[in-house]
């Protein structure tokens, strides 16, 4: 049955992905209540606690699907929130990716300490629609800014980070031949730079990073496998242009390891548009191509993400 839908054009797969995203609640009721509570609290606190003023609008980027500040798929050298070196910023996010045969829900939060250290927590729920199963995973992240400022330093901002991943549902990882079906740790080094007025007066942002990982499909299918059970270096890159102070468009690419013999794992890419109405919220919409996942080929669809900056 798979082959009939394979001919779907990018356009229709994006539409299908969107309809899947909106098929049920965009955010699970629990997450929705949590986010609303935090946003209401933040708004109530506004008069006494300003949102961080340490950066210009859109400079913290958005939240990637493992909870770190970056693009949608890849972590960047920027840290979550508008904190300057004198304050702490907190943010929450919720994202949903809908592709042909799967759906991924992610929610979590991040703290930015003095624009030096970012601590993040993310909870992923991966829905295998055909199998009627789900895989849940928790990701604890830390990122340290090693050098520079995205905009003001002469050289790019450079950060290094770690993502510790713990699978809650291990049965599928075990079944597909993962070497470790419980937990794994990714390490990454990333450099990002925003060039003011670089393209006909428009701001250009680029980011490039390398990740050492054993994770199969983010870790949802365990870590390491029968084909390869050691760390490999994967390249991640992003390019974006700010159309005005509030809107950025761009593309991302994320190389993936291929550790499991039962099915090929392919590189990911996306094209996104991010909207920053103010320093309290951003919303990002993307068309994603996740390639083959666990034997289901050409997994394409839509990505929608919301990040709220609390203080």
């Amino acid at each position: 049955m798979a082959t009939t839908t394979r001919a779907a054009t990018s356009h229709s797969s994006f539409r299908q992905g969107l309809s899947r995203i909106f098929h049920r609640w965009l955010f699970s009721p629990g997450a929705l209540i949590r986010i609303c509570t935090l946003i209401i609290t933040a708004i109530a606190m506004l008069p006494i606690a300003h949102a961080g003023e340490g950066k210009i609008l859109a400079a913290p980027g958005v939240t990637q699907i493992e909870g770190s500040a970056g693009g949608g798929l890849t972590p960047w050298a920027v840290l979550a929130g508008y904190a300057s070196r004198d304050d702490i910023a907190g943010s929450v996010f919720s994202s949903r990716v809908g592709v042909d045969d799967y759906r991924l829900d992610v929610w979590g939060g991040a703290l930015n300490f003095y624009d030096r250290v970012e601590i993040s927590v993310a909870h992923q729920k991966f829905d295998l629609k055909q199998a009627g199963a789900e895989i849940r995973q928790d990701i604890y992240g830390a990122k340290v800014r090693l050098y520079g400022d995205l905009i003001y330093s002469e050289w790019p901002q450079v950060s290094t980070g770690v993502q510790y991943k713990r699978l809650q549902d291990t049965a599928i990882a075990k079944a597909v031949g993962a070497a470790d079906e419980e937990h794994g740790t990714d390490f990454y080094l990333t450099a990002s730079k925003l060039h003011l007025g670089a393209v006909g007066g428009y701001n250009l942002l680029w980011s490039i990073g390398v990740r050492a990982t054993k994770a199969n499909q983010l870790g949802l299918l365990g870590f390491g496998g029968d084909k390869r059970d050691r760390y490999s270096a994967q390249v991640e890159a992003a390019l974006a242009v700010l159309l005005n102070a509030h809107v950025a468009v761009g593309a991302e690419y994320r190389q993936k390891p291929d550790n499991l013999g039962f099915a090929e794992e392919e590189d990911w890419s996306d094209v996104f548009i991010a909207y920053f109405p103010n320093k309290h919220v951003n919303i990002t919409l993307a068309w994603v191509d996740l390639g083959d996942i666990a034997g289901q080929d050409n997994q394409r669809g839509a990505y929608l993400s919301l990040t709220g900056y609390l203080w």
């Binding site: 003023e53 340490g54 210009i56 624009d115």
Partner: peptide
């Protein structure tokens, strides 16, 4: 940093009010 940034935001507001196009602001 925060003071600096608030002042940059003031300048951007002024340029917006004076109708300076976004690419010119960036330059």
């Amino acid at each position: 940093e925060a003071d600096f940034n608030k002042t940059v935001d003031l300048l951007i507001n002024v340029m917006n009010k004076e109708g300076v196009p976004y690419p010119t602001q960036n330059r």
